[in-house]
Design a binder for these strands. Structure first.
Lengths: 335, 335
DNA sequence: CTGTTAGCGCTTTCAT
DNA sequence: ATGAAAGCGCTAACAG
């Protein structure tokens, strides 16, 4: 800040132009790596140095219509899945000079609306929606209209807008293969604990029931809406209610960790008397004992791809297309 | 967007003014809740409705110098501590109409610099630094100069700038009390696993050694830089190296979870033969078996307070002051 | 290669 | 209560 007449004066390209004895356009050109004569370049650099000049991205955004800001909508950054997604997306974006604005929506419609409006008001260049829950925005035409011509990328749930691409992970197949693995191992009483009831959650259930159906086994599904305690509590119920139980599959690692805790508490040997398979294959899998076998749904890869597609859209690349990734069962000790 | 001559035309206050048959100043006044005659108010509202008008916050920011954006610098959003902090800060800020821009710095100086510059360029209203690691920015006068007159709030590490406030949690005392608890329980061979080497980490170590010193016990510290596997690996070493071992304290819940895993693997009864105490008291504590006893360092409270102080600074409140919170030992099953 | 000028969409005097 | 006009800091023709 310059002090002039006792007031803080912002350092702008005018300040630099004056000091470097040139015009603001030349300074602007220098800032945007366009051709500037070496001599003037040096003078400009000195001036910038002297005043600690930072170009004002707001003003730039106003004229270029690009703020280099990308909004990332997640349900809850506290959950490892979203935290990881946000991390990898941010890393890719910031490497390419974009900024990430993370929005915690709690999955609630009103909050989503608020953040979409907010994103629009600050002219984000695009929005990345992480999680199948955002597919329900399709039912709200007012929102869809608003973002119709905005570059959007979704993971696990496409939006009906003109410029939306999606990175999908085949959740159903992931759970299907995990279930088949258990069946082939000889398990016959495989129960499922479902958390939440979004698109992704129900796809997982489908994979589970499909595998059981193929072997004429009966699906048993317990539900919870408590991400941290649900696995534990439902497993306790399961142990109490079900006469037969030799495996538990869940839609999240965390739920599985709770399940393991409940089994151990009841002196049931995990991985021997009862198998447990989680979903995500997060870093926490190796912290549980026994280590959690889990479906790896490729969060890192999916998140990076989501970021890359967004960048490609913004850089005007064509030949873009949505993508479907296949999960992979990571076998550890619990199954 | 309006279509005019085949080009997308932005809907601006001009569009609204024309439609409502008034001037842009009046529209602007309406937008900022200033006095407008009821009749014109209605016409403006209809126009806004008709065109789905969203005021451009970028343009507003250019003139008001306030973007309502707050940058939040963390080390790594994937770690529960930072994820929680970011979550609670964001919730408080967004309730008050601010936006949160989360920046993952990996704790590296160059990345910090980059994000600080970026924050300055987009005219954030303030920066919140989460984690003691940012205290090392004090050694870099160029950075301090840049943000000297920008509202800043830090958690666990003050910056030497004119408008910086800090929310500190007494890490040292937290670990001190945990250690004392173990000593009073009769433990005599209490080891410590330290992760990372920032201010906060060394404060914790101080608390540990202080408590042991008071009882003439010998401190034994193992170090790791691997947040997810460190606890496990160092505990294995501990078991191998130390003839005596009846308790382990760590600076993070995650490290403790790894320690528990290692102990169980070696058939050591956790909570009986060997106690374990973690730090954070995160949701994961109740997922481990036995449930992890841990120092609750009040992340939620600290984060909320950090956000509130930031808001208070921005709203021009005075009588602001930094704050020190006391942690609290949450006893569960592992100690 | 460089300077002049006209906006970007908004707020804010200053008149009326 | 309202309108006209200036200006926030920058980019992008345009002319040289």
């Amino acid at each position: 800040m310059l002090k002039e007449k006792g007031v803080n004066m912002a350092v702008t390209i005018y300040t630099i132009a004056k000091e470097a004895n040139t015009s603001i356009s030349t300074v602007s050109r220098y800032l945007n790596n366009k051709n500037v004569r070496p001599q003037t370049k040096i003078r400009i650099e000195k001036a910038i140095e002297k005043y600690h000049f930072q170009p004002n991205a707001i003003a730039k955004g106003l004229v270029t219509k690009s703020t280099k800001n990308i909004a990332v909508l997640v349900v809850d950054i506290r959950l490892p899945h979203y935290a990881n997604a946000a991390y990898f997306i941010d890393r890719e974006l910031s490497q390419k000079g974009y900024r990430t604005i993370i929005c915690n929506t709690s999955g609630e419609l009103e909050v989503c609306k608020k953040y979409v409006d907010s994103a629009l008001q600050i002219n984000v260049d695009g929005i990345i929606f992480v999680g199948s829950i955002f597919a329900k925005l399709n039912e709200h035409q007012d929102i869809i209209d608003k973002i119709d011509d905005l570059p959007c990328v979704t993971t696990n749930g496409r939006l009906n807008t003109s410029r939306c691409y999606s990175i999908d992970v085949d959740d159903q197949n992931g759970i299907y293969n995990a279930t088949k693995y258990l069946i082939e191992k000889g398990r016959r009483n495989i129960k499922y604990i479902q958390y939440s009831d979004n698109l992704s959650a129900s796809n997982k259930v489908k994979g589970y029931t499909r595998a059981l159906d193929e072997h004429n086994l009966k699906p048993v599904i317990y539900q919870t809406n408590d991400i941290f305690n649900g696995g534990y509590l439902e497993t306790l119920k399961l142990i109490e209610n079900e006469e037969q139980l030799d495996a538990i599959i869940t839609g999240e690692d965390i739920t599985s960790m709770g399940a393991i805790r409940a089994l151990l508490e009841k002196n049931i040997l995990v991985g021997k008397e009862c198998d447990v398979i989680g979903f995500n294959s997060s870093d926490y899998c190796q912290l549980s004992f026994p280590a959690l076998t889990a479906v790896d749904n490729k969060i890192e890869e999916a998140s990076k791809k989501a970021a890359h597609i967004m960048i490609d859209i913004l850089e005007g690349k064509d030949n873009l297309s949505s993508l479907k990734l296949q999960p992979e069962l990571k076998i550890r000790e619990s199954a």
